[in-house]
Amino acid sequence: MRIALFATCLADAMFPRAAQATVVLLERLGHEVVFPSGQTCCGQMHVNTGYQREALPVVEHHVDVFEAALRPRAEGGDGVEAVVAPSGSCVGSVRHQHALVARRMAEQGRADAGLADRAEAVAARTYELSELLVDVLGVTDVGARYPHRVTYHPTCHSLRMLRVDDKPLRLLRAVHGLDLVELPDAEQCCGFGGTFSVKNADTSTAMLADKIRAVQTTRSEVVTAGDSSCLMHIGGGLSRLRVGTKTVHLAEILAGEGWEAAL
């Protein structure tokens, strides 16, 4: 399958390994990955902080770029069949916020009336990594080996906006050599919440402290998740407290130990 990668702004700028591992994994599974170079960001930070008017051109830009990627090559597009992002949160924004923002801004006379429908069309073919693998490509055993003790944090947006359910866990259970340990109170938010982590830093930190305590009880070498943002938060806390547990994006585990050799 020909698949467009939406790297997400955070992975692109700060956590390239999550996006690189996604490419390596999909290519190993025999798929062709394209990277529409005009892409930037889904605009979620703006929307969730109340800046919908500022988010609008970012949303429009995202729709333009991936609409073109999804257009058949005969019509000048990239001819991809699906868009994938290594982030439940960014896909959640594409799927649940883009059309909402477009409609609200259209009501204010700031957006084209057609933008919401175009956003929905792009969203309908945009998938979070575990969704793409399990639902679209029909694989759970991606042939990876990762001989480590790992615990999985289901990020809020993958869990409750996308309803990925146990897809990431099914993928992890099929990884050879991986010792999967259940995370206590796994479904509790880590406290990131975008600008919430700064605007309400004390509450955010209190939530993080409980998450880190839960991670520590698992005695895992690695805590994984499908979102670089939540991992940045959990990792920032682990690092500050000098807890040895590493944060590793789900894509990097599914790419298999030593995947960097393919870079």
Binding site: P16, Q20, A201, G235, G236
Partner: peptide
């Protein structure tokens, strides 16, 4: 943020730069 959490260091190479370097001809 940094009162209670470390921030990650930016990577030496962004994804975009890596893609251009390794697969730049593809799109």
């Amino acid at each position: 943020w940094t009162t209670s959490r470390d921030a990650p260091a930016p990577p030496p190479e962004t994804f975009r730069q890596w893609w251009a370097r390794t697969r730049g001809d593809r799109s």
